[in-house]
Nucleic acid binder design. Structure first.
Lengths: 142, 142
DNA sequence: TGCAATTCAATTGAACTCAATTAAATTATA
DNA sequence: TATAATTTAATTGAGTTCAATTGAATTGCA
């Protein structure tokens, strides 16, 4: 009759499988991203740049749910790889503008092979993927 | 007609909201776990111990999807706080047995307040939570 | 205009995470 | 039995993550 601690069982948690599945899926990206010499964080930053070839660090951080403590070293490493140029805005010196280089743009062609290969190793039906997607964005408040 | 790069849009990804929602929810634990002086990783390790007062580091790592590189410092910090005792198994010296202390057991009473408060700030309907739960465990292959 | 408040990126510090390696102990096998 | 293979935890290194702080630039307001 020891029900008062049931809510503390691992199997009763929603956050825990969220946390574990997130790490698990990021891990599945690794062999594919290794081919591009990108980490997962660098990859999602490149995704933002492929859609927005010039964007402020702040706007990128908001899209990625990352703060400057995380994003600053990511952007510096992408700059070191030659995919990004970092430059202060002329209108407002506080703002750091990030721009995609031609090399960074070219990387997109190699990257197109990643999503289908990831999809192939996440064993969800299409409708399950859609359901998961909308539940996750509901948690994110978007 | 630039459809060939659509699969690389952030809004088309399933992993990205998974990754973002995971971090977001872990962040929501912080004020509650601060009251217990636990990090999220320490908290889930304690959850395992509340269910299994004595367990090997290997078994705990399998339940939590964590390897020894992560778990070793977590268990050492829990031992430093007095919640856990680490001791080599008598039968097999390779095996590290972790045991809950009385202080660690007592912490469970304070921890019972965490799940209801987290539930209150994750805005999902009960049936949505159940659906999410099963989709996440499907990804985890469990 | 001049000062206060705000915005923004960078830095710092603590903790997590994984991959790869190491070392010790055990088990399997020739 | 002696050696090889396996198992396990610990360590190391690179990168991520957040909270808190700092400092520069801008904006708002008296």
């Amino acid at each position: 009759m020891d029900k008062q601690y049931d809510t503390l069982k691992l199997s009763h948690q929603l956050c825990f499988p969220l946390y574990a599945a997130s790490k698990e899926v990021v891990k599945r990206y690794k062999p594919f991203l290794d081919e591009l010499d990108l980490t997962y964080t660098q990859y999602i930053a490149m995704m933002v740049l492929w859609e927005h070839p010039t964007i402020s660090a702040k706007d990128m951080g908001e899209q990625l749910f990352l703060d400057s403590g995380t994003l600053t070293p990511v952007l510096k490493s992408l700059e070191a790889k030659g995919y990004v140029v970092r430059r202060r805005s002329d209108e407002d010196e506080r703002v750091l503008m990030c721009s995609l280089t031609p090399t960074g743009l070219a990387l997109r062609d190699k990257a197109t092979s990643v999503p289908p290969r990831i999809a192939a190793c996440i064993h969800l039906l299409p409708e399950e993927g859609i359901a998961l997607y909308s539940l996750l964005y509901k948690i994110l408040g978007k």
